[in-house]
């Protein structure tokens, strides 16, 4: 049983079908790319997987340590608790909060004290806060953000905001991480650095990663498999090499260089 099995996933908005019968399978530990021209429905797939949109039809099954859960129809916070985390294409940090708080808030689902303790600051509060704060610092160190922990998220440079979003997603302790254009707006050097980072966190956190990306160099370099979406339909699936030479993919990307990496 794969970690994630998406079966005939469909979403229509009124008369417009954004995603039609999409099937995706991710094995434990895989790093898979989801590519396609603008407006192909990639982000819609992410929104369906994370519960931001409710699918019109189809199944999403997450298999975590042999326990299967159907995610379709679940609220986003439940899906997060089931072990799916994401970043957003158009960065959605908590802008007016500090870097530290951005990550700390995402640890909320694992917090072990109740309301009473939060009102009265009982021992369990102090114990848990200490644990959360340490875990947050650890994550920030990985992303080299520990020096900026007290800065407002909105004041970080663009690249660091993207890093912070990934750190925040990891703070929810996911088994599946969805990255929506993590390299958007980065220069080649930053992209290369990010590529290494993604590989590294996959090992370190034992993650399965699905990523949407326009930067083909990144996709072709680190993804083991690639799904190609066009007009809401999957048109190809395979290794980067297979995708590069796939006729339908080239047609879909007409004018955009796929093979030129």
């Amino acid at each position: 049983m794969p970690l994630l099995k998406v079966h005939k996933l469909t979403k229509s908005f009124g008369g417009l079908t954004a995603v039609l019968n999409v099937g995706i399978e991710l094995k434990q530990g895989e790093l898979v790319g989801l590519i396609g021209p603008n407006g192909a429905g990639k982000t819609t797939v992410f929104n369906l997987l994370t519960g931001v949109y409710v699918p019109t039809s189809g199944n999403i099954i997450l298999d975590k340590d042999g326990v299967q859960q159907e995610l379709q129809g679940m609220k986003p916070h439940r899906i997060c608790k089931a072990g799916v985390a994401r970043t957003f294409q158009n960065i959605r940090l908590f802008k007016d909060l500090t870097v530290f708080d951005n990550v700390r808030i995402a640890m909320h689902k694992n917090v072990q004290y109740g309301l009473l303790s939060s009102f009265l600051h009982l021992p369990s509060y102090h114990r848990e806060e200490k644990r959360i704060n340490e875990a947050t610092m650890e994550l920030l160190k990985i992303f080299k953000l520990d020096g900026k922990k007290d800065e407002y998220a909105k004041n970080l440079p663009y690249g660091e905001q993207r890093h912070l979003e990934i750190a925040r997603a990891l703070a929810t302790n996911p088994s599946l991480l969805l990255l929506d254009e993590p390299a958007a707006g980065m220069n080649p050097a930053e992209t290369a650095q990010l590529t290494e980072l993604i590989k590294w966190i996959r090992e370190k956190f034992n993650l399965t990663i699905l990523l949407i990306e326009h930067d083909m160099s990144l996709v072709m370099k680190i993804c083991e498999r690639v799904y190609v979406l066009d007009y809401g339909i999957l048109i190809a699936e395979g290794t980067p090499d297979e995708i590069r030479s796939n006729k339908r993919v080239i047609e879909a990307y007409l004018g955009e260089d796929v093979g030129d990496v």
């Binding site: 916070h77 997060c80 994401r86 957003f88 959605r92 908590f94 802008k95 995402a106 997603a169 929810t172």
Partner: peptide, 13 residues
């Protein structure tokens, strides 16, 4: 700050 981001980060908004 951001209701959708909060919900996606596991907060029952």
């Amino acid at each position: 700050e951001d209701e959708i981001a909060a919900e996606t980060m596991g907060i029952n908004t």
